[in-house]
């Protein structure tokens, strides 16, 4: 029994990574109907920036703000920088291509992804980088039979706070209503007086910022980062957002968590080597029987 519970917690931890990255894909897709292939690389870039701050700036920052302060500074620096990078990429790579339609934008997005990935490689080098090991005290909590590390609790707490606040913004505020309206029908929304550019600004700053924070959390959790990891996480996160119903923000969160839990349960009970196959099979089955994803009802494809 305790194996299931532990795997559930591991699954939720990984799932929250997927969910946070998936949000970036889903928001951009909802507003622009564009698969932002560069999003995985936003995540990687955030992770590397956090790494730089924590490794090279740690002595300075931690002496002023303490350990937790250092983490917060790293998160903030990464999030703010990536928000800026997101905006620049939108301006330079996507905006000039929008009028031409969706498929040229896919190539442009892939181009942006190659560009970012290789920028990271040129700056930080092609080898793996390791996050500092003693960032978070290595404390285990024992709840009955279940082990949880402090880091896991912290990651879960933080991702649920981030997701919760995004959920609140999108579902409860007026601006959130504008985002949802834009996702449903961009032309009508702009006719109703919604400033589409503001919505685009929002999704292209918040998505990459969330991705960057996830990048730091992944760095702390696995301690090893590489310049190509954006592809893998991006692929999984994109899968998660489709699973939940692409363009749908609660769907992306749910999809990410489900994907993480399925992956961990698959690894524990079926086979660790086949866990990704298992994940993709579930995805295909869901799409065959429910082509719009779990929560994607409202965004059925127009005929």
């Amino acid at each position: 029994m305790h194996v299931i519970l532990e795997q559930l917690i591991n699954g939720l931890t990984i799932g929250s990574f997927y969910a946070l990255i998936a949000l970036g894909y889903s928001m951009v897709y909802g507003v622009l109907k564009l698969i932002n292939f560069a999003h995985g690389d936003f995540f990687t870039l955030g992770s590397y920036l956090g790494y730089t701050v924590l490794v090279f700036g740690s002595a300075l920052i931690t002496s002023h703000f303490g350990l937790w302060g250092g983490l917060i500074v790293a998160m903030t620096v990464a999030a703010v920088s990536l928000a800026a990078v997101g905006l620049i990429v939108e301006r330079l790579a996507y905006r000039p291509v929008y009028p031409a339609g969706r498929l040229p934008a896919v190539v442009s997005a892939l181009g942006a992804s190659i560009f970012l990935q290789n920028t990271i490689m040129v700056i930080w080098g092609p080898r793996f980088q390791a996050y500092p090991s003693k960032l978070i005290p290595n404390v285990h909590l024992q709840l009955g039979d279940i082990h949880i590390t402090l880091l896991q609790i912290l990651i879960l707490l933080m991702s649920f706070i981030l997701m919760g606040s995004l959920y609140f913004i999108v579902q409860k505020t007026t601006f959130g209503a504008a985002i949802r309206a834009t996702a449903l029908d961009r032309d009508t929304a702009s006719l109703m007086g919604i400033n589409i550019n503001k919505v685009i600004f929002f999704v292209f700053t918040l998505g990459p910022a969330l991705g960057a924070m996830t990048g730091i959390m992944v760095g702390m959790y696995y301690r090893q980062i590489s310049f190509t990891m954006g592809w893998n996480y991006g692929l999984k996160a994109f899968t998660a957002s489709v699973l939940g119903g692409i363009g749908n923000i609660p769907g992306a969160m749910l999809g990410g968590l489900i994907l993480g839990v399925l992956e961990m349960l698959g690894a524990a009970y079926i086979s660790a080597a086949w866990k990704d196959v298992f994940v993709f099979l579930i995805l295909i089955l869901v799409l065959i029987f429910r082509p719009t994803g779990i929560l994607g009802e409202k965004l059925a494809e127009k005929v």
Binding site: V97, A100, V107, G111, I114, F115, L116, V122
Partner: peptide, 21 residues
């Protein structure tokens, strides 16, 4: 060398800007 894929990515973006079809 190291910069060629950077150029490659930028070329892809530029191409779609100027010849989207």
């Amino acid at each position: 060398a190291m910069y060629r894929m950077l150029v490659f990515g930028s070329a892809m973006m530029l191409m779609m800007m100027f010849r989207p079809g």
